[in-house]
Nucleic acid binder design. Structure first.
Ligand SMILES: [Mn+2]
Ligand SMILES: [Mn+2]
Ligand SMILES: [Mn+2]
Ligand SMILES: [Mn+2]
Lengths: 219, 219
DNA sequence: ATATAAATTTAGGCTTATCTAAAAATAGTA
DNA sequence: TACTATTTTTAGATAAGCCTAAATTTATAT
C-alpha cells in the first residue's frame, strides 16, 4: 500500500501536526527525518496525490483522515513492538526504539491484532506513550511535567518525553522509571534545578532539562 | 549493511546453490525472485563487487563464505520468526511465510538471540526446516520422501518441501501435520498415488505430487 | 512601503532496482 | 563441424527517493 518512506513521512507529520492549526512545514519534517526540505516537498506532492495529506504550497501540510489512519496505525505497531521487546524479550527501555522503527513497517493486520492480544492489550508503551487502538484513537496522559510541580508536591512518573538512550539510562541510574514516586524538596530559583525525594528513599538533584521531560501524575 | 533486496538475492542463491558444483544461473534466480534475468545480472555484479558471491560470466554464481553467512543469517531469522508466529501468536503453518519474509530483514543481532532464547532454541521451524545456528551451520533431515517408501513401510512426517497455502491446508485437512505417522497400504503403479494409513486411524489416497513433498523419518 | 532575511519550491542530477529489446555467448543437433 | 536454439549479457529507459544550487515566495524590520 504505502512504502516504508511514505509511512515515516506520515508519522512525522502526525507528530508535529495538531500542535496548532497551521500545517507542518517542510523544514520541520526534514529535520525530523534527517533529510532536506527539497526532498520533503517532492514527497509531500506524492502524498497529496494519494490523498493522504492536504498541501498548500508555502503553507505546510496536514494529514487527511486517511493519512491519520496510516500514521496512527504505524505508531500503534511501533509501541506494541516496544512492549513486546521489553516485556517478553527483556530489553531495557532505552534499547527498543531503533528496533521498533523497523518493526513498525511490517504489514499484516492479523499480526498486529494477535500481538496486541499476546501482550494482553497494553495501553501504554515502555516510555508511557499511549498505544492507539485499531481505529487510531489514543488518549494522552494529562501533560504535567515534573518541572511544573512546586515545593512540597508529589507525584508518580507516567511517561518520558525524551527517548534518547543517554536520558533513559540516566533516569534508570537514579531509580527514575515508570511508576517511581517523586516528592519535591526544593527548587533552585537560579536554574530551576530540583532537589527531589525518589520512592521515599533517596534524595537527588535533577536539572530542569531532565525534569521537564518527565510526565507526572500528581498525588 | 546489505539492502533488503540484496538479502533476497543471497537467499535465492543459497537455496539453489550446492545442488551441484555449477553456479546458480541467472534464470533460476530470476524465476525464484519473480524478476528478469537481466536484473539478476545487474545485481550479481553488485554482490560480486561486495565479495558476497563469485561470478563467472555466462556460468552462474556461487556464494562466498561471507555471502553464505548473510544468507544463513536471513534464513535463521525467517525460521525463528515463523516459530514465534506459530508457537506464540497461534498462527497456522500456512499463514506465516509472507510475514516471515518481511521480518527476516529486521536488523538486530541481539533481537535474534533474545528471540531464539524466548522460543527456547528451537531446532526446526513449523515446516520442519532446520534453523541455522548463529554461525550458519544447519543440519538437514535425511531427505527421504513419502514417495520413496514402499508398500508396508511406515514413518513419521518431519517436514514439507512445498510451502504453498493450498498444499499446507490440504495436508492439515487430512490430518497430515509434523509428527503424523503414515503407513503405506498400497501404491498404484499407473500414477504412483498411494493408499496410506494416517495415525493408525484413517485411510486416505494421496497423489504422487503430494507424497513427494513430504519428508519422512522411517520407522 | 520597501528592502533584506528566511523559508520553500523548482531545476537538474544521482543511485538503486527494475524493465524491454538487441547483441553475444553457449549448448544442442544434424 | 556448422547451424540453430537457448541462455545470458549489454544497452538504454524508467520510477522512487534523495541531493545541491538557484529561483521564488513569505516574513520581518526599518
Ligand atoms: Mn520509540
Ligand atoms: Mn516508545
Ligand atoms: Mn517460510
Ligand atoms: Mn518455514
Amino acid at each position: 500500500m504505502n512504502t516504508y518512506t511514505e509511512e515515516n513521512y506520515l508519522k512525522a507529520i502526525f507528530k508535529y501536526g495538531n500542535k496548532s492549526k497551521e500545517g507542518v512545514s517542510t523544514n520541520v519534517i526534514a529535520d525530523e527525518l534527517n533529510t532536506k526540505a527539497s526532498s520533503v516537498t517532492d514527497m509531500i506532492k506524492k502524498l497529496s496525490d494519494k490523498k493522504l495529506v492536504i498541501y498548500k504550497k508555502y503553507h505546510g501540510v496536514t494529514l487527511t483522515e486517511k493519512g491519520r489512519k496510516v500514521a496512527t496505525s504505524v505508531i500503534r505497531k511501533h509501541r506494541l513492538w516496544e512492549v513486546f521487546l521489553v516485556d517478553k524479550l527483556d530489553f531495557k527501555w532505552d534499547e527498543v526504539h531503533d528496533i521498533a522503527e523497523q518493526l513498525e513497517h511490517i504489514q499484516s493486520d492479523s499480526l498486529v491484532e494477535r500481538l496486541d492480544a499476546f501482550l494482553e492489550h497494553p495501553e501504554y508503551d515502555p516510555h508511557g506513550d499511549p498505544i492507539p487502538d485499531k481505529n487510531g484513537n489514543l488518549q494522552h496522559h494529562v501533560d504535567i511535567r515534573l518541572s511544573d510541580l512546586i515545593k512540597g508536591e508529589s507525584g508518580v512518573i507516567v511517561g518520558v518525553k525524551e527517548h534518547s538512550t543517554s536520558y533513559l539510562k540516566y533516569l534508570e541510574s537514579i531509580n527514575l522509571v515508570l511508576g517511581s514516586s517523586i516528592q519535591i524538596n526544593e527548587i533552585v530559583e537560579f536554574d530551576q534545578s530540583m532537589s527531589i525525594l525518589i520512592n521515599n528513599k533517596e534524595n537527588t538533584n535533577i536539572s530542569n532539562q531532565a525534569s521537564k521531560n518527565l510526565i507526572i501524575k500528581k498525588l
